[in-house]
Amino acid sequence: MEFEFVEKKELKEKPKENLGFGKYFTDYMFVMDYTEDKGWHNKKIIPYGDITVNPSTMVLHYAQETFEGLKAYKGKDGKIYLFRPYMNAKRFKNSNERMCMPEVSEELFVDSIKELVKVEKDWIPEGEGESLYIRPFMFADEESLGVHVAKSYKFLVILSPVGAYYPEGVNPIKIYVEDEYVRASVGGTGFVKCGGNYAASLIGQKKAEKLGYTQVLWLDGIHRKYVEEVGSMNAMFLIDDTVVTAPIEGTVLPGVTRDSIMTLLKDFGYKVEEKHMHIDELMKAGREGRLKEAFGTGTAAVISPIGELYYKGEEVIVNDFKTGELTQKLYDTLTGIQWATKDDKYKWREEVR
């Protein structure tokens, strides 16, 4: 891909410990512009810095905005890998279509990430469980007050070195089941990775934290009784010998990790069922001891074991609030593929050369 490179005179000192998540950012970022007459143009890798926007910039008023999240890994073989980036690219394309935003081709999406990662390869941390988080995003930058589809957009990619999500091992979390507020409904933007979905979920998250819970399990927006997803993660439940998860029908994010975990589960010999599961059915399985394991799946944590569910005054403890054998096996297998310590028979690793 052809692009302009604007060199930075003085580079930052790279952090060596306590990376956390999203606290530090690399020296450079990728940026390109879109206009109706030119399409995507002005491709650049420039020093990371502030974006100047006019007060009338449309994204500030009408929220035409989408983003993605993936990681770059320094493999144990010394090579640099992305994990299934074309799946992120496809989801980004679908998100933009729903938000009436221009398409970024899968090739352009992945190439922009690869070129930036190559420039910033020395920023990829090499500690256990550490990686380089990649945030591509796009927004309407037309200067206009009027509710209409914008005519110009900006696409950027920024990078952030992140620490191990579980520095002391994979630990269970406590989940609050939300039945008052709604995050997504059929026909809406629940399947889109856009800021508005996360903004809508904050009130439930705030409520959960106030009650001493880590995350929110959202129910469907119409009946408020069918299990959907956990905040920023897809949710899965091992009931008896079957793993149950919500179907992808427009209200749940089609997660890259979700799809990968489902593939592993089937290879491990587990039955996987995508269905609308009533919250009462889930709680009953928990009371009867048939809910053997539960976990969330997402890019940041890979797997988040669920140790407790709280719904309408009732608490259900899952697997004695311990990380289950299956959960740990899934985590070890997927991270092994990502960091190239395990064979990648699925061809999920994409080398950055």
Rank of each mutant, 00 (worst) to 15 (best):
M277Y: 09
G296V: 01
L238W: 14
Y226M: 00
F237N: 06
V186G: 07
V244K: 14
V117M: 15
K207R: 15
V182C: 08
Y346A: 04
W123E: 01
D240L: 02
V31Y: 06
A340V: 01
Q328T: 06
K329W: 01
G286N: 10
W218M: 01
R353F: 10
P167M: 10
L238I: 05
F237A: 12
M101K: 03
S131R: 07
G20W: 11
R224L: 00
G146D: 04
I306H: 11
C100K: 14
W348L: 04
G127T: 07
K347I: 00
D240K: 15
K271Q: 13
I337D: 08
G69E: 02
A89Y: 01
M262E: 12
G163K: 09
G195H: 11
G195S: 10
K193V: 08
K154G: 04
G196A: 11
I175N: 13
E178N: 04
P254Y: 13
T242M: 03
L265S: 12
G286L: 12
F83D: 02
K114D: 08
A246C: 13
A150K: 14
S112Y: 05
W40C: 05
V318E: 10
S56A: 08
A301R: 09
L116A: 07
E168K: 15
L309C: 09
K44S: 12
G49D: 13
S201H: 13
A285S: 15
I303C: 11
E13C: 10
K207D: 10
Y73H: 07
G75N: 03
D111N: 15
K329A: 13
Y133T: 01
E314P: 04
D111P: 05
Y165W: 15
C194L: 05
L11V: 10
P167V: 03
V186F: 14
D320T: 04
D259T: 09
A208P: 00
T26I: 00
L326K: 04
G336T: 07
G255F: 08
S201T: 05
M277V: 08
S185G: 11
G196E: 13
V117T: 10
W218K: 04
P172W: 13
L211S: 02
A184H: 06
I279D: 00
Y270Q: 05
D320F: 04
G187Q: 03
M32R: 12
P167T: 07
Y213S: 03
P125V: 09
N234T: 02
F237R: 15
L159Y: 13
R183I: 03
R135K: 12
I51Y: 06
F21S: 03
G127Q: 14
G212W: 07
M1V: 11
N54T: 02
E293M: 05
